[in-house]
Amino acid sequence: MKNFLYGRASSTRAAVDFLSNRKNAFFLAGGTNLLDHLKLGVEYAEVLLDIEDLPERELTDLEEGGLRLGALALNSEVAADARVKSNFPMLAEAILSGASPQLRNMATIGGNLLQRTRCSFFRDIHAPCNKRNPGSGCAALEGAHRNHAILGTSEDCFATHPSDMDVALAALDAVLVIRGVTGERRLPLESFYLLPGDTPWRETALAHGEMITAVELPPPFFVHSIYLKVRERASFEFALAAAAVALEVREGMILAARVALGGVGTVPWRAREAERLLVGAFATPEAFEVAAEAELAAALPHRDNFFKVELARRTLVRALSEVAEKWGGFE
């Protein structure tokens, strides 16, 4: 790694003030993504400000069963929390399906939200990459892109957003609490992530120096949910396709649905079209097929990842079916 300065932040306010005034300065949380990038040369830092001593690590109850996750809570702590396991099981499932025990013991909620793509050309500083080096081109178009995204893609970039946790958070209507020099703001996770378009280096709505301090989960309306991840081996592998699904079913009819897809989007993919078709429909295999088909109608696969369209469709149908089973099966 190239030389950098290292310091520990003593307060959130001081950390935000400090970073806002400096270029090439980063917050250091778990470091599992940032240090990797600094070694590879994908990112360059003059200063790392360690924020792990800050108090934003608690999990606190909100009204009516909502929950606030401090941005510095470890992935392993959140997955093991009794409230998360009982009220937001899909979040615990998503976190535990990602990375390894060692990495989950280091990774934080804020860092996970800001982890960057695993596209091998993004990670190879010798390859053209519009995200890493604006205007240099996209080596994945010609090169290996089996794992790349099929939803939310652009001509400039179709790198997959790799997170599992963020897919569950998308389905759970999570709201990010963000602290900047002028104060605090709240942003729904869905508006936090930016599609690549012709500016693939702009990935989130976070301004330089702003810190994510917490993630708020609204009260769960649903009783049954699932995070289903499909990958090339049963553990320690990123998703080829994943579905986070929560349904509320009464007498066979779907009253509410929250659906998000992972492994297939350039951002954690909230499946609004599928939700629209599910709500008011009866929970039947046919309805699930129709919803999944519609969501993937917009998919734009490339040479080697056509299989993902079918895989994502089936993953979603299976996830919906498994949640329906929990409600007592099909009509």
Partner: peptide, 23 residues
């Protein structure tokens, strides 16, 4: 040296971490 293999695993305050991704 990038958190994939776990050969560098150590316990820090009783918790397993990859020492290659920690300063």
């Amino acid at each position: 040296d990038e958190g994939e293999c776990g050969a560098c695993t150590v316990l820090v305050d009783g918790i397993a971490v990859d020492s290659c991704l920690m300063l």
